[in-house]
Amino acid sequence: MEGIIGYGAYIPRNRIKVEEIAKVWGTDAPSYKRGLMLEEKSVPSPDQDTITMSVEASKNALKRAKIDPADIGAVYIGSESHPYAVKPSGTVVAEALGATPEAHTADFEFACKAGTESMFVALNLVKAGVIKFGMGVGADTSQGAPGDALEYSAAAGAAAFIFGRDKIVAKIVDTYAYMTDTPDFWRREYQYYPQHGGRFTGEPAYFKHVTGAARGIMQNNDMKPEDFDYVIFHQPNGKFPLRVGKMLGFKKEQIEPGWLVNKLGNTYSGSSPLGLAATLDIAKPGDMVLIVSYGSGAGSDAFIFKVTDHIEEVRNLAPLTRDLLDKNKNYLEYGEYAKFRRKIRKAD
């Protein structure tokens, strides 16, 4: 039996409210908040990036997994904001954890799906018996161009999952992937901010792939929405995951524990992984959990997990995701936010 043996989250403490951004660009905050179902988003400090957040989330995962980091056979980091264009994030993370030198590492990039990609590969390497333990991390310090709709949602956070065979907290039931070539959102080499297709990111992109993956994995396992206790969808804004849930026949109660977006924003590669971490924080033994990610470009990964008795023993060994989200917040004004995100042009 394979599955998750440890999981951990990390969310920076800085937040900026939709109103604060709207004030600068002269947009109507109430309608944005309604339209996106978003109140505020997390913002990384200047000393935080995909690597540092991945290390912290991974350390939290290690606290729950209680394994020797040297036994981790693979460290995969999924992000669209790897700090280096060339040079892996994974080597830094693995070194900080003490997982080097006998480990495989790779940086994944697939817009917001890179996190579940890293989990998908780490988990399936464990299943294949190639490694004893594998770790997949989803982390991003997302970029949204100033004044663009993305600026209201592009956030920062990370979640890490360690997979293994013993002392499993959530057993893997199945994985599934669904993808086509759909250019709904992209960032070219040397560009600082991504571009997107506006409303094209909806129906032919997000909704098509998320429903495709969700229906595919349920069909393969002969399961229906009511067979799940919880479901997590990628959360580019508050509305999309609720709407796609409704389209598929899920109830709001199944979605809500992992629906963090209204207070967190879109953490891109960290989005659905953080939703899964928050859901495991409250899940009971025996609960069935479905997670469906989405990455522009475009595709979705789906996983079905069955929570085990062991969850109760490890849950409180590391910070709970909702606590990271709700406690110790520091609200920024737009000027500080612009400084933190290097949106201010300085002299060389």
């Binding site: 935080q48 690597i51 540092t52 830094v92």
Partner: peptide, 20 residues
């Protein structure tokens, strides 16, 4: 302790990580 970036070696140099 938390793992953080301490500084960057200019615009093109290495990123320097460590404890804070």
């Amino acid at each position: 302790l938390e793992f953080r970036k301490l500084f960057e070696e200019g615009h093109a140099g290495i990123l320097c990580y460590g404890y804070k």
